[in-house]
């Protein structure tokens, strides 16, 4: 498991030309465990989606992400009433091995069951997805992510809607991934959790406020600056002259 460094150079991502992530430069080193924090609308999810190739890069560059990342999306973005069984959904995590037509590996079902067990969903194999609670669905997506076995993991609010026990189980999984040398990047809101578990932090308020060791980034003054981010778009804003405002 040897992830490559992911480099961002003057990266700007936008929604309808308004920046969602503004002039972000820096690197996610191989094996690093980074929390992405910031207020609502700060561009955290957009950044993860761009790293996964799901959001177009407006300006600047992303290097080293293609082909090695797997994304845990925000569960709320999926149709939870689709007529698939839990096992079917988890097996899609083996897409890289089976593709559109090839047979799945012999041990596919066993690996899928193990992934379900690791996320506390033993016995859910034949359950239709529509019958899961929000938290169980989130765990199902985690199980699919396990099977993808990617060197770089992008987690978008992985602990939302989870009870304490499940959150603890999934945190164990994240620690294990970190121990295996995978790069993990997680969008989080619980700063106590970030301080306790995540060595690196990227504090984002559209403009990058700080990126580095968690204790140095999550200072009172940085958090205040992040909080002052203007959440509304400025409809009269002129084209950017190329420098971050914050």
């Amino acid at each position: 498991m040897s992830p490559a460094t992911i480099r961002l150079a003057e990266l700007t991502l936008s929604h309808a030309r308004h920046p969602a992530v503004h002039h972000l430069s820096g690197s996610f080193l191989p094996g690093s465990l980074t929390a992405v924090v910031g207020p609502n609308g700060a561009g955290k999810s957009t950044l993860l989606r761009a790293l996964a190739g799901l959001h177009p890069v407006h300006e600047g560059r992303i290097e080293g992400a293609a082909g090695q990342v797997a994304l845990l999306p925000q569960a709320a973005t999926l149709d939870r009433h689709f007529p698939l069984s839990c096992l079917d959904v988890v097996l899609f995590g083996l897409w890289a091995e089976g593709g559109a037509f090839r047979a799945l590996p012999r041990d596919a079902a066993a690996r899928a069951r193990a992934a379900l067990a690791a996320t506390g969903l033993t016995g859910f194999e034949r359950r239709p997805v529509g019958s899961l609670s929000a938290g169980q669905f989130q765990r199902l997506l985690f199980a699919r992510l396990l099977l993808q076995n990617a060197p770089v993991l992008l987690l978008d609010e992985p602990f939302t809607a989870l009870d304490a026990r499940t959150a603890a189980d999934l945190l164990t999984l994240i620690r294990r991934w970190h121990g295996e040398g995978r790069t993990v990047i997680a969008v989080l809101h619980d700063l106590d959790l970030v301080r306790a578990e995540f060595p690196e932090t990227l504090l984002l308020a559209r403009d990058p406020i700080g990126w580095g060791a968690t204790a140095e980034v999550l200072t009172a003054s940085n958090r205040l600056r992040a909080r002052m981010m203007a959440e509304a778009w400025d409809d009269a804003a002129p084209p950017c002259d190329g420098r971050a405002v914050a």
Binding site: A70, L71, P73, F92, W95, Q148
Partner: peptide, 26 residues
Amino acid sequence: FAWRPLVLECFDPDFARAVGARGGIW
């Protein structure tokens, strides 16, 4: 022939795109 990619594209088009399943073509 197209069963697997079609089902994936219907359920989770983003995931299909991220794993390079070319959902749009299906």
